[in-house]
Design a protein around this nucleic acid. Structure first.
Lengths: 118, 118
DNA sequence: TTCGATGTTCAATGAACTTCGAACGATGAA
DNA sequence: TTCATCGTTCGAAGTTCATTGAACATCGAA
């Protein structure tokens, strides 16, 4: 990410591989991706990571701007999904391999999903 | 080796996925890996990147310490190879997917191999 | 309208990273 | 021995990044 990639907010479609790797090299962000890897939508507050909410917001923005996730707003709530189709379209097989590696190893284990325990 | 090194200079075997992704998120380093991707050994000076030699040395050290490459010394010369076997062992299929992605896209195109044009 | 909850943005800080030139040690050649 | 080459290490400069609390905007509920 040391390139002159100063794109404020391109649609996405133009994510370079180094940039994508940089985005996913953060344990928290990789953990988020791992949680979202089943394709299901998650509520913002459902994402449980050991960081301040401003930090979590920053990471989600980073993922969003890199085209990794999509955020849907509904009232005051946000819902996040993994854009697996878009990623597979740009880098076929890569996300799958990354998720396999993430599962094999540890990876972002501190990012969990907040289950509603009755 | 130096006393300035607070780094966990473990053999390697302990490379986390986020760290590996961070190492490969640099265009120059990814370019080096791409050049080495055929498995053949390359001479240090054969690696042609638009950076100072001290910078190139730094990047090669980073790759080496992450277990991505191996450096063999012979006299004053160094020879670098990609440790595909070790990487495949730790993260099966990942390197292959990354190289495919690197080939699909651009990636580190400014790192080339110095062909001996006599 | 007023209140509470939800996320985002801002400004600041410290750590980590990239980059370079200069200096250095090691090796092979003259 | 003397010299040139090769690659590493050092020191410094500048940049990027993760992180935080506070302030803010928005929306639903009361």
């Amino acid at each position: 990410m040391s390139d002159h990639d100063h794109r404020p907010a391109r649609p996405d479609a133009e994510v370079t591989l180094p940039r994508l790797l940089g985005v996913l090299s953060d344990p928290t962000r990789l953990g988020i991706v791992r949680v979202l890897s089943d394709g299901a939508e998650r509520g913002w507050g459902q994402l449980c990571a050991p960081v301040a909410k401003s930090t979590l917001s920053h990471h989600l923005k980073t993922l969003r701007e890199a085209g990794v996730t999509r955020t849907r707003q509904e009232g005051t709530r946000c819902y996040v999904t993994l854009r697996r189709d878009a990623l597979d379209d740009r880098f076929p097989g890569l996300l799958s391999a990354l998720l396999d590696a993430a599962a094999t190893d540890y990876v972002g284990a501190h990012v969990t999903e907040l289950t509603k325990d009755t």
